[in-house]
Simulated assay, not measured.
Amino acid sequence: MTADRTETLAAQLAELRALDLTGLPPSTPVTEAELTDLEHALGVALPTTYRNFLLRVGTGPGPYYGLHRVADLHVNAKDRGDTAGLFPLTPADFEEHFVTARARSIEMDFDAPGCLEIGHQGCSDTTVLILTGELAGTVCDQWENQWAPARTPLGSTNALELGLTPTLDEWYGAWLTGRLAALQK
Score class of each variant (00 low, 15 high):
residue 11 A to W: 01
residue 20 D to H: 01
residue 21 L to P: 00
residue 30 V to T: 14
residue 34 E to N: 05
residue 28 T to I: 11
residue 38 L to Y: 03
residue 23 G to Q: 07
residue 32 E to K: 07
residue 21 L to T: 12
residue 19 L to D: 13
residue 38 L to D: 03
residue 21 L to Q: 12
residue 21 L to K: 15
residue 13 L to R: 12
residue 35 L to I: 15
residue 16 L to W: 11
residue 31 T to I: 10
residue 39 E to P: 10
residue 30 V to P: 11
residue 22 T to N: 03
residue 25 P to Q: 14
residue 36 T to C: 00
residue 17 R to F: 09
residue 28 T to Q: 15
residue 36 T to K: 08
residue 37 D to V: 00
residue 18 A to I: 08
residue 20 D to C: 07
residue 28 T to S: 14
residue 29 P to V: 06
residue 29 P to K: 10
residue 11 A to P: 02
residue 11 A to T: 14
residue 28 T to V: 14
residue 24 L to I: 09
residue 24 L to Y: 02
residue 9 L to T: 05
residue 35 L to V: 13
residue 38 L to S: 04
residue 35 L to E: 02
residue 39 E to W: 09
residue 10 A to C: 04
residue 22 T to M: 13
residue 30 V to M: 03
residue 29 P to G: 02
residue 19 L to Q: 13
residue 37 D to W: 00
residue 17 R to T: 15
residue 23 G to T: 08
residue 27 S to V: 12
residue 19 L to F: 01
residue 10 A to S: 13
residue 35 L to G: 05
residue 29 P to T: 06
residue 13 L to M: 14
residue 14 A to C: 10
residue 28 T to E: 09
residue 11 A to G: 10
residue 30 V to H: 05
residue 29 P to D: 11
residue 16 L to T: 08
residue 22 T to W: 08
residue 39 E to A: 06
residue 28 T to C: 08
residue 10 A to M: 01
residue 22 T to E: 08
residue 13 L to Q: 15
residue 39 E to I: 10
residue 24 L to E: 08
residue 11 A to H: 11
residue 12 Q to M: 12
residue 37 D to N: 12
residue 18 A to C: 12
residue 15 E to F: 03
residue 39 E to D: 06
